[in-house]
């Protein structure tokens, strides 16, 4: 049995020696921060046009995270490529010959990539928050307000979970193209559309992204926040359950199918 420490080191080398890691993670950061900044600035200047209800439920923290709608897609690409490139290049056979224990191989890879996603997610979250608040002017909040720090750290956790979920799905599907083709439209369109349709809403609130986004929300019934009958940590738990399911599914496929 290969030593776990050695396999972790090897996976870290793998991840830092391909260019896709750099460009996907930079995209995560830029998309989230830039779009969040723009929307914060626009919200500040048009705040007076909002209805009374919208003004009272305005969530400055969540507004500064508006760019995550796109940033999370870059995170999906990161997660998919970390796993999918093993399959598309044929490297998977070389990798598994070197590390025949499927669990050691998979969880080392996912551990390393997940940790990297968490670090980038947290940095992105904090930077997006502070830039967003600076641009929101009078309507901004501070990190010391109740629930705000939880939401900012939550944005990092959310990004990490999105990456882990994408990795689990890709191990199951064994193809980058197929995984991107399913995950991108799902997170960008399907999930958001269903969450806005009256009946479908009740189900959509339990989708991984809808549930996880609860964690980013400070004002409970913010206009662009999620619904559902659970709180921020409830939502986090639901998203974690999805991730665990995807990873177990991925492990079972990896263990039982021919490489």
């Amino acid at each position: 049995m290969a030593s776990a420490a050695a396999v972790l080191q090897s996976e870290w080398t793998k991840i830092r020696t391909v260019s896709s890691t750099t460009w996907t993670l930079i995209s995560v950061f830029l998309a989230t921060v830039v779009i969040g900044g723009v929307i914060s600035a626009v919200s500040n200047s048009t705040f007076g046009d909002l209805s009374d209800v919208s003004q009272t439920t305005f969530d400055p923290t969540l507004t500064s995270f508006s760019g995550m709608v796109l940033g999370q897609l870059a995170m999906v690409v990161f997660g998919v490529l970390v796993v999918g490139s093993e399959y598309s290049s044929g490297m998977i056979r070389t990798s598994l010959a070197a590390v025949p224990r499927r669990a050691t191989f998979l969880f080392s890879k996912i551990g390393v990539a997940g940790l990297l996603a968490l670090v980038v997610g947290l940095i992105t979250g904090f930077v997006a928050f502070f830039i967003g608040q600076a641009l929101l002017g009078d309507h901004s909040t501070t990190i010391g307000e109740p629930g705000v720090l939880r939401a900012v750290i939550g944005s990092g956790l959310y990004m990490c979970l999105i990456a882990l979920f994408s990795m689990g799905i890709t191990v199951m599907l064994r193809s980058s193209m197929l995984s991107l083709g399913i995950l991108m439209p799902f997170f960008f369109l399907v999930s958001n559309i269903l969450a806005a349709v009256p009946k479908a809403k009740d189900v959509a609130h339990y989708f991984p992204d809808q549930a996880g986004q609860k964690l980013l929300q400070v004002v409970p019934d913010a206009a662009n926040g999620g619904g559902g009958s659970y709180g921020p940590w409830g939502g986090f738990g639901i998203m974690c359950a999805w991730v665990v399911a995807a990873l177990i599914g991925g492990y079972l496929v990896l263990r039982n199918r021919d490489a």
Binding site: Q9, S10, S89, M91
Partner: peptide, 27 residues
């Protein structure tokens, strides 16, 4: 040690780094 049928290395990585990943995993 085995040489398999098809190319089984990551094309986006250098030859050196491809081998380094394998070397590290087996100490």
């Amino acid at each position: 040690g085995a040489l398999l049928e098809a190319k089984a290395m990551h094309g986006g990585r250098t030859a050196y780094n491809n081998l380094l990943c394998l070397a590290q995993s087996n100490r």
